[in-house]
Design a protein around this nucleic acid. Structure first.
Lengths: 160, 160
DNA sequence: AGTAAAAGTTAGGCTAGTCTAACAAAAGTC
DNA sequence: GACTTTTGTTAGACTAGCCTAACTTTTACT
């Protein structure tokens, strides 16, 4: 993986970061619930992350990210968000499905791809005409298998 | 994974399918080279795929996909191609990097996402004006951090 | 045909990550 | 303060996938 961590460890870091946003203390049980793994798996993972200097965790205590751990976690969170927006807002994939897919994909995109995707999402969604014509056009195309002729005509007109 | 196979097994199936396109016989050594793993790993994988009814492989012989194996392999190949085109032709990611990324991502996209992405790529790249204005606009935006005012002006004009 | 090289297999070991079962510590309650 | 529940840990087993080393089969060459 790009961060030097496995997909699984990235998931743990991400979970810790996200839980930390809404709770004062991050605990093994919460991580376990969020990731759908058993507590011994969390224990083992924290051990490893602790060895790698990415989390602070004394026995039976709560969990905190180190600076380095936070850096990686935020990177993963960022990937997730960009992928989620791309899938749900641009492709129009169901939000639940987008979440699940983003959770998987986030581990595998190179940084150069994520950089470009980030800008692409921004570019499309901040279209100066407001609700992007492009996305309307795509929705129509996806649903009907062909372009909305009216939209196309308007577009071609613009060419003079 | 969506196909019922692991990422690794999907890679083997894909490799067998792609090698089959250019050679009369697919052999362990070729698979091994293509995937960058040692031959015993290929042997083990073929064993498993054979048990699952996805390949035909008698000892010391060559490898063939069953109908079901071919179905899965083609699915993976399709994902790869769509992702590759999206990354390289739409996002403008370096082609080498796009290949590598597509190889990873191909295992994780849900079928509903891939369906929409497929259409999206088609929609963007078959823009009726020829070389899509959108991609020019994005390239400019990516390189300069802001929109090409001239293009935007032309776009807004169209609104009347 | 006989031997050397190449191709493929088997055996066994390693890592990463998961699980269950059993135990230990902390927190909550009477 | 003792007992119970919740939380967390340790130990040990399992799967998937990779590797190296040693062996076997096939192929190629003389």
């Amino acid at each position: 993986m790009i961060t030097g961590q496995t997909a699984s460890m990235e998931d743990y870091l991400e979970a810790i970061a996200k839980l930390g946003e809404v709770e004062t203390e991050v605990r093994v049980t919460e991580i376990s619930k969020r990731l759908g793994v058993k507590k011994p798996s969390v224990s083992a993972a924290l051990h490893k992350l602790s060895e790698d200097g990415l989390v602070e965790h004394r026995k039976y205590g709560c969990v905190e990210l180190t600076d380095e751990g936070r850096r990686i976690a935020e990177d993963v969170v960022h990937r997730h968000e960009v992928l989620f927006r791309f899938l749900s807002e641009i492709l129009g994939v169901d939000r639940e499905v987008s979440q699940v897919d983003a959770c998987k994909l986030e581990h595998w995109l190179s940084s150069s791809s994520i950089k470009r995707l980030t800008k692409f999402v921004e570019f499309i969604l901040t279209c100066p005409r407001g609700e992007p014509v492009l996305l309307q056009g795509f929705d129509y195309y996806f649903d009907h298998g062909e372009r909305d002729e009216e939209l196309v005509a308007r577009c071609l007109e613009e060419e003079r």
